[in-house]
Design a protein around this nucleic acid. Structure first.
Lengths: 186, 186
DNA sequence: TTTGTTATGGGACGATCGTTCAGGTACTTT
DNA sequence: AAAGTACCTGAACGATCGTCCCATAACAAA
């Protein structure tokens, strides 16, 4: 089966992807509330009807965007852990650095990701996507650390959210002791 | 100065409060996205123009609502801690029970509160209100536990959010070991 | 070439939105 | 009693929204 040889479908898929990426940029800039067919189309440089053609409804567009976003996040976290492990580090420094980056230069993206969380709270079909990075991490850990892992993951989420409402992003140095505390075994 | 003797202002203040409470109910039901002058007015049983009269813009209405919501949350947390302390408990059971309640019967309210967080991330004027319950707790604790406290608070926030995207609310029994782990001194 | 399918995009429709305005009521002050 | 202030509300305006329709272009299968 040659599947993707059809030039029309290929172009369609490419444009679908462009629309999804434009949607993510809109969410980073203005939040989920700023997502309309027209703003997304303008951001992607396509006519308004193009977004309605490729996504049956605005809801579908949002869902597709947030699922794609969650997928990126999961693979990113996976490689981060993998890298830290191969260095034999327990990871407090790495995690603190990653948090500081997520709350500083990548702040918009982080806000978008947490809007996914809350949207998933209201829409069950988004929950598997929202849980993906939690599942990825859980599967990488020895089953006897489960409680410690859950506490750690919850702590990371909390530090993220609380960092988002700080007047200026916390530095890795400020975050490290807290992360270290969360990582400490008992 | 008699201040609130003016019957007109009294009625105005009362209606303002009713509108704020109606707005909170709308947020619990449909999220911040569902807040419009018309939905709020319908929920409060007042004409649409009443919400625009008492709040210069929809933004002001949202801000007033979320600030009021944050204030309630802060005093609630204050008394919760006070109660736990007077019982001499370290509080793992109490906290786990409170989490389970927030994620079960009071789920809508909890979602509304976390939408405040994300809105505050985008609107600096909301941040003091969003931080209030953190400040209340921080001020009730010995300064040498600061790192442990920050880790604990972050963990609570994370458990809340993650609990919101579970397919069914976690029970207090499931949460207790994680909370206990977060509370354990080192 | 003919036929069928998919993508594209201009234009428009009805609904809903935030907000304004003007006329009216209720209350206080003078 | 008269003037001033604060609240109330029906009606409406312009803007923007999601979505649909239809003609056209690009491409594949026959």
């Amino acid at each position: 089966m040659k599947a993707q040889r059809d030039g029309r479908k290929m172009r369609g898929d490419r444009r679908r992807q462009e629309i999804i990426e434009a949607t993510l940029r809109v969410i980073e800039r203005d939040g989920v509330a700023g997502v309309t067919h027209r703003t997304v189309a303008a951001e992607a440089g396509v006519p308004t009807t193009s977004t309605t053609y490729h996504f049956a409804s605005l809801n579908d567009l949002l869902i597709a965007t947030l699922i794609s976003c969650a997928k990126d996040m999961a693979t990113e976290v996976y490689w981060m852990i993998d890298r830290a492990r191969s260095r034999g580090s327990r990871g407090a420094n790495e995690v603190a650095g990653l948090l500081a980056e997520a709350l500083g230069p990548r702040r918009g993206r982080t806000m978008a990701e947490y809007e996914l969380y809350l949207l998933a709270a209201r829409r069950p079909e988004l929950r598997p996507a929202a849980r993906r990075w939690l599942d990825v991490l859980t599967s990488m850990v020895r089953p006897d650390d489960l409680v410690a892992l859950r506490a750690f993951l919850a702590g990371i989420d909390g530090l993220m959210i609380q960092g988002l409402i700080d007047d200026e992003p916390p530095s890795a140095e400020e975050l490290r002791p807290v992360v270290d505390h969360l990582l400490q075994p008992r």
